[in-house]
Design a protein around this nucleic acid. Sequence first.
DNA 1: CTGACCATACCGCTTTTGCGGTATGGTCAG
DNA 2: CTGACCATACCGCAAAAGCGGTATGGTCAG
Lengths: 259, 259
Amino acid sequence: MDTQGLKAVAPLIAAIEASASIAQLGEALAHATREMGFDSYALTHHVDMRRMRWQAIRLHDYPLDWADYYDRHGFGVRDPIHRASHLTTVGFAWPRLGELLPLSEEDEIFLERARSEGIGTGFTVPAHIPGEAHGSVSFVNAVGKPLPHAALPLAQLVGTYAFEQARRLWRLREPPHRAGNDNAARTVPRLTPRERECLVLVARGKSNWEIGRILGISDQTAALHVRNACRRYHVHKRSFLAIRALFDGSLSFIEILRP
Amino acid sequence: MDTQGLKAVAPLIAAIEASASIAQLGEALAHATREMGFDSYALTHHVDMRRMRWQAIRLHDYPLDWADYYDRHGFGVRDPIHRASHLTTVGFAWPRLGELLPLSEEDEIFLERARSEGIGTGFTVPAHIPGEAHGSVSFVNAVGKPLPHAALPLAQLVGTYAFEQARRLWRLREPPHRAGNDNAARTVPRLTPRERECLVLVARGKSNWEIGRILGISDQTAALHVRNACRRYHVHKRSFLAIRALFDGSLSFIEILRP
DNA sequence: CTGACCATACCGCTTTTGCGGTATGGTCAG
DNA sequence: CTGACCATACCGCAAAAGCGGTATGGTCAG
């Protein structure tokens, strides 16, 4: 087939992947943004920047006033655009926001405030990595300027590659970790089937007695399975056990939250 | 700019988004797969299919023998391709697998086994949604047939849109939930700053006494904050509290795992 | 300035956890 | 068939968690 059709995207992505510094990535992303027919971009982790200067990814060319207001009110975790991006793997156009989320009054006020700062409409590409803060890349147009609909798949690609490059560059800023500790964190322990069943129930907040009831075993046997699971994960508390198992993917939310 | 360049992708994506049944999606995806120069595809949740028939997404045209072997051994959660896809937002070509992950001996055996079943090389697009099972879409070629490098960005797009469409179609299969329960689950409680700090420490498996020490308050005050956080989330156990906060995004792994 | 909300601290009580053991029967690979 | 591993069950004990109170001082919006 005509894979040449993608020629137009290739140089944009190449520039993003070639960027060797955060500043260069910003330039490449800004260039791609204009090329696609947008006014500005924001590549960011969805965190409260007041608490999370350390490590959190953020790169944008939004109005500084707006960014300031945004951070002071901790919108990183409340922004309805961000919340909506947690519900989809593909990017979404902002006019369809309501289809993804019920918008609260607070959300409406927030969006109105954004418009008054010149943030009109946009397209947001989610970027999630298990165990990392949620993130997204938004491409935005001024009030009154419509979305470049033909370019949205392109924005999807550019956004995804840009976020990945941002992760690479941010990782370079980090101090290298102690290998020992790191290895301990990276090894995924193997649980026995029974231990895994108990683990799921622990994650649901069940007591050993309840687990025993559910699995049809003694509460002390259940406790032993939980203990063994803890031992394999080198943790001493069931709350942390559940977190660790979720983190390394041996447990998923659908198992926990759908009884 | 020449957004016409994306013309080649548009019909493939349109077909995927227009598919009204899982079977139709399979056809559209198979067609796109061939068009891009691949032999087969696999769109799947990374779960143990032995335990997770219910709800888990899976759609593929791999050899049935292989799929059978795969499921019987519970590779959904161990497959190194899947594990690697948890470390990136953009797709990766399988020859670069080693750059993402250290491969264990078990992994090598697994990959060798795959090759013996005709699974040569491929390109895998991750698809993660906070709170859902991890997933991915792989495009695969037979042993000896090289990857169509020019088509990889295209595969990135097709994979992402296909996974999203699969989510939509699978959602239709689900029985509609009770509105009441659902609302309770969807409301994100607002915690006070102190409660949030305690919550993070709970997720790290700290005891109330330790939390008190860390925050410089009494252990009983820490306990009270934890209790209040539990109250807001309508949960009775701290292990579940941490999970729920992670699930709704008020907590992220980087906060928990980076002290 | 008043009421709402928060952070702080303490008490007492019951239940649950976490940790140390031991022991029996089953399965499965070497 | 033997040893490794698992699931099962039990005991005991110290620590922690969960739940019910009450109380004081601070902040901030209406």
